[in-house]
Design a protein around this nucleic acid. Sequence first.
DNA 1: TGCTTATTTCGTAACGATTACTAATTATCA
DNA 2: TGATAATTAGTAATCGTTACGAAATAAGCA
Lengths: 157, 157
Amino acid sequence: MNPIEHIAQQFAAQNYKLTSQREAIVQVLLDNEKDHLSVEEVYMIVKHSYPHLGLATVYRTLELLTELHIVEKMNFGDGVARYDLRGDEQAHMHHHLICNVCGKLEEIKDDWLVDLESRLEREYGFTVTDHRLDFKGSYNSCKSTGCKKDKECKAVS
Amino acid sequence: MNPIEHIAQQFAAQNYKLTSQREAIVQVLLDNEKDHLSVEEVYMIVKHSYPHLGLATVYRTLELLTELHIVEKMNFGDGVARYDLRGDEQAHMHHHLICNVCGKLEEIKDDWLVDLESRLEREYGFTVTDHRLDFKGSYNSCKSTGCKKDKECKAVS
DNA sequence: TGCTTATTTCGTAACGATTACTAATTATCA
DNA sequence: TGATAATTAGTAATCGTTACGAAATAAGCA
Ligand SMILES: [Mn+2]
Ligand SMILES: [Mn+2]
Ligand SMILES: [Zn+2]
Ligand SMILES: [Zn+2]
């Protein structure tokens, strides 16, 4: 099943309609999976395929996608909310590597926290349902070449 | 050395003055170390000891404390920035357990990520300088007793 | 000590991301 | 088809934060 069909099912399962506006917005997220787009950025991009779509609809749709756990609303400290597709296969949120030399943001889709989660269960009586893990640091290649704000390094903002 | 003296030294080291206003604000953070106060909350509390202190000064001081790495500016998704004291001994930010039954927020001051950090160094050529790790889930005691928004459980917001 | 300059504070206006609201449009279904 | 519910569009209002100018305070120096 292709991604858009799968999302359509998730909408239907909760009695929401995947309208043409919502589909256009979801398609923007799928087409830019590597980015972590803000509302304004989604709005700008979706206007190419759907020129009359309103900003409030983007806000409402991204909020709905968050409720349905299709995207994760994240805050990276730059003053705007950013939306990150959660893959269907992963139960928990993926991790992030953020380079503070060039701003590149890499994703780690494997769950590296399963051991810590069972430790929390054992030692704290705490059952983890989700988590957020961001590493800040720098790639050794970035440090040596000094690729400051390089075009090949996609900054978060 | 007591905490406030140590912070005074950090100010002096960067050629900043620990004015009476700044000291009053820092004291509020120290007195409420377990909470994760917002600007507005700090402002309300500091008015008890320093009634004429202005809101803009709270904003500016917390920003300065963030620059000096004395506090960490965090966003828990409730629409306001919250400020969290980083202890001096810990190089990296501490972790959080957030109960989604009662909202309690517990801190784990040990760094549970050292193994993952060396793995990042090895496999990704990425040197970690800091990180953020929040676990969302529920305490088994909360699930069984159903302590919804209980007074003994201090919510993040 | 007096004078000059840099720092900090204060109050408030401006800003900007988000939310709320109303009317118009579209889907649902009897 | 007609009534009802869901969705959208546009925009006004909200609210956390930032910017700004004037006043106060501290530091440097003769
Ligand atoms: Mn991501
Ligand atoms: Mn904390
Ligand atoms: Zn880089
Ligand atoms: Zn609880």
